[in-house]
Structures are given as structure tokens and as C-alpha cells.
Design a protein around this nucleic acid. Structure first.
Lengths: 147, 147
DNA sequence: CATATTTAGATGCATTTGCATTTATATATG
DNA sequence: CATATATAAATGCAAATGCATCTAAATATG
């Protein structure tokens, strides 16, 4: 009789996953709490605003943004709604595709992105930068290239 | 005039955070998808069942579980509801504290935990083990001790 | 050209989450 | 002992999420 024996992950692999999870969750909570504390929008808004700011000239399409940010389609659709309602982006009709739209950041959006970065960046430095010795950073980054 | 200049995180710090996020999200999605594919409960159930299985003899209190798993109180309360409804744990009255309860895993819960591990472990091996060279694992683990 | 298929994006609905509050019991304090 | 405070756990409600589906426009196919 044959048994299927799964390939058990090594103890180290399991530990890596646990540390990865805890680190991620701790850092994320800290960043979100910092933003909330400063009465700023959640982190997801930042990613959108940053991407829009980067390509400000070329007016990006939602489905492109989706690929960049790895968000589900419905999720991005709603996120754009909220950010638009807050006045940080505009949805413009799309000439070359009647189904689509072009999304552009507003002046207020640019300002908000900067305000968010002041808090986000500081939180990141506190939660990551100050925890990893300068000489270890490149090593960690190299090893983290799983995906 | 004085300006407040925030401590900008280094480019490497930012990259670490981005890689960390993407890796975490990719691995988690893969694990959750594997469990769903196998028609098994979500990962959060596993953590609870594992903890209960470990201390099976001593019947743990929800607030202790909360500390172990770093879950919000209301979140664990509801999670226990669902797992209980599915028959994988039992809530028993607590003699030494009338406000509290003792939570114990059932026989079915133990079986379910094992079934989940077969899938979860294999997914972990595939998503982490096979991506990190054996000789890099200890290094990565060491560097991940941020929290 | 007419019809079928695909793609971009929105949305209805059920489930889940987060927050604040509630209930009940335990502990501290006068 | 009576009352105030703290702690364990549950829950009402609003907001967020996931899934499936819908609408509209674009592209492919006969």
C-alpha cells in the first residue's frame, strides 16, 4: 500500500513565514495608525496618488493602475470613487476607448500625497529603517526577492 | 525661519517594505487559495485550532488566545463562534471566572487541523521553501527578526 | 454587415470588519 | 459591606470587502 507523504516545509521555512507575517502586520498597523492619528486617509490612497503623480502627464487608465497595484478590479473601482469624492483625483472620459476613463491627480491630490508621505515615510523609517542595521538592509532586500 | 525636515527613510528601507508587502500578500493569497481549492476553512481557523491542539489538555481562555494570535477581541469572539458552529471546538463554562469560558478543541477539530496542515504546509513549501535557497533561509530568518 | 465574444468598469447583495458600547462578573477602595 | 472600577466576552451598527453579475463598448468571426 502506498501513502501520499506531503513535502513538509522545514522548520526554518515555517519560522520565516511567521516572522514575515508578524513583521508585515506590525509595520502596516503602525503606518495605518500613524496616518489615522494625523487625520490622513488610509495607506491605500497613498499608493494610488503616488502612481497618479508619477504619470501625471500621461493620464492613466484604471486597468493599468490595477496591474501596478495588484488590486481586484471592483476594489480599485471603489477606491477611485472615494478618492475622487474627496477631490484628490478626476475621472475624465477616454477618447480612444468609450468603455474606459482616464484618471488624473488634482492639485489637492498632489498636496495630500506629500502630506501623507511626511507621515508615512517617518513611520516607515521608525518601523523598518531603525530596526534593521544599515549593513543588513541590502542583504535583507536581496533575500526578500521572493516575488 | 525653521522648517521641519522629516527623517526620510532610505531608498533601501522603502524597497524592503515594498518587497515585504508583496511577498506577504503573494504568499498569503496562495495559501488561502490552496485552502479554498481544497474546500477547507480559511487560514485564521488553522491558527486557532493549532493553538487549541497544543494545549488541548489545559483548556485555554479566549483572552489568552487573543494574546497569542494578536487578534482584536471582537474578532476572536466571532472567529470562535464560527469554528464552534462548525463543530471544531467547544466553549465550556469557566469555574474560576464566571465572566469567562474555557475553549477546547474537539476530535473533529483535531482531524480538521491535520487536513488543513496537509494543504497549508504544502503551499508554504511551494511559496516559501522552494523560493529561498536552503543556505539563505537562516540568514533571512535572522534578518526578519524585526518584531 | 450581423452576431458572438471579450474587455473596461460599475454595482447588488451577502458576508466580514471595525468601532463603540453593553452585559456580566470580578476586584479594588472607602 | 456598598460602591466604584476594571476585565471577559458579546453585539448593534455602519463601513468595507468579496463574489457574481451587469452594462456598455470594443474586437473577432462567419
Amino acid at each position: 500500500m502506498y501513502y501520499f507523504k506531503m513535502t513538509e516545509p522545514s522548520a526554518t521555512t515555517i519560522d520565516i513565514w511567521i516572522k514575515l507575517s508578524r513583521s508585515y502586520q506590525a509595520i502596516l498597523s503602525f503606518i495605518e495608525a500613524s496616518l489615522k492619528q494625523a487625520e490622513l486617509p488610509p495607506l491605500s490612497w497613498y499608493d494610488v496618488l503616488l502612481e497618479l503623480d508619477r504619470v501625471a502627464s500621461t493620464a492613466i487608465r484604471p486597468f493599468e493602475l490595477q496591474e501596478k497595484l495588484l488590486l481586484p478590479q471592483y476594489s480599485l473601482s471603489r477606491l477611485l470613487n472615494k478618492i475622487e469624492k474627496a477631490g484628490y483625483l478626476q475621472r475624465l472620459p477616454c477618447n480612444e476607448d468609450g468603455r474606459g476613463q482616464r484618471v488624473v491627480i488634482t492639485r489637492e491630490g498632489k498636496t495630500m500625497r506629500k502630506r501623507m508621505w511626511a507621515v508615512y515615510g517617518a513611520a516607515l523609517e521608525q518601523a523598518v529603517g531603525s530596526k534593521v542595521a544599515r549593513e543588513d538592509r541590502e542583504k535583507l532586500l536581496g533575500l526578500l526577492k521572493l516575488y
